[in-house]
Design a protein around this nucleic acid. Structure first.
Lengths: 202, 202
DNA sequence: GTTTTTGCATTGCAGTCGCAATGTAAAACG
DNA sequence: CGTTTTACATTGCGACTGCAATGCAAAAAC
């Protein structure tokens, strides 16, 4: 079993602890117990707690990307921009328990990095990439009569998803409300859809 | 000096600690030191740490409402719905250091309550009230030709502000980007404005 | 073979934590 | 007046923290 794999195993345990009891309950001993290993081993793979946290953050990042990639792949080749966007963004919402767990961890890390700006560089990169992709899809799928700036719309769309995620995690709304809001936003940006989205391009 | 006032004083110190070093640095001793009092006094006013946290959360909530109230009051009587909305929502964005500090605390509490659902009831109430107000303003200010559902639009608008706030706190974008996205969203919901309408501040 | 390195486990330590217990001075009260 | 209550301050304790140090068996290198 190689180094990276072990670290990931530990980071997964960290995320389970964080999802259940919050980041402040993440200690070397708790993580070790959750992973079913000795705390010495955790220390062997991460020399400091911060190193462990940073690595776990990168794992969250990978989960994120993997989820998006899988959702896109499941759409088949050449998906309509609107369908692609919706699929991606819905995937980012914490609608089931698995994504809720990831979401709680991500939220906790958000608060964590807000006070440790030096760790947040990776998150920043991810945001920029996502934004560019969203803007591209909006540009491709927006009807000609709409005067929306794709870049601004992308920022707004991503912010909506983030915000909805936060409110969902807080249990402030049910899933349908969030989905309705997301669809309404897509309508606003890309025009209301008829049946058979994006089939009628010329 | 009365009970409530003392508690608020301590809660303010708590928020300063939380804004600078995160909620995990909030301990009885740190808060006491920051407030310039003995830790025994803190304990006298809050029997447990959780009680202190919960009270501080309610103070954050009050700050929030006070800020919004002041912003609205500053607009004078009978403001245009769009201007009112924009003023309110801009006020919620962490654009200066004071609001950034509040925002960091709010974000930390968000992560905190995500794992302690029993504490989050107050936040829920606030959200519901805000949503109803936003929906009312959208309904009042939306041009007749737009087919937007005010309730969904309100959810979206609030989510955008929350999301933008999160990204601003993370330093992922500059203030102008967030403001541009907010204005673009208001354009989408309420129709594009002519030059000079509510576009000229902050 | 021996030696060195690797991969972990165990132990220990200084520091911090929440919180209870206790002390004390002033205020309120009868 | 004495007594009780309030408003703090101080001390202490057991639990927990990150982390260094050390131990130790197996693998790798020589």
């Amino acid at each position: 079993m190689d180094h990276r794999e072990r670290r990931t195993l530990i980071a997964d345990a960290l995320m389970r602890v964080a999802a259940e009891r919050g980041l402040e309950a993440v200690s070397l001993r708790h993580v070790a117990a959750e992973a079913g290993v000795s705390s010495g081993m955790v220390q062997h793979y991460f020399r400091t707690r911060d190193e462990m946290m940073t690595f776990a953050l990168s794992v969250v990042h990978e989960h994120h990307e993997a989820r998006i990639g899988a959702a896109i792949a499941a759409l088949g080749p050449d998906p309509a921009p609107r369908a692609l966007l919706r699929t991606m963004l819905v995937e980012l919402l914490p609608l089931d328990e698995a994504r809720r767990a990831d979401g709680r961890v991500a939220l906790a890390f958000l608060a964590y990095t807000a006070v440790r700006p030096e760790v947040a560089a990776g998150l920043h990169q991810e945001t920029v990439g996502l934004l560019a992709f969203l803007a591209g899809q909006i540009r491709a799928g927006r009807p000609a009569d709409r005067r929306v700036d794709p870049d601004r719309a992308a920022v707004g769309l991503l912010a909506i998803v983030e915000g909805l995620g936060v409110y969902l995690l807080g249990g402030h709304y049910p899933a349908e409300t969030a989905l309705a809001a997301l669809d309404a936003q897509l309508d606003l940006i890309m025009g209301p859809t008829d049946v058979g989205v994006g089939r009628d391009r010329d």
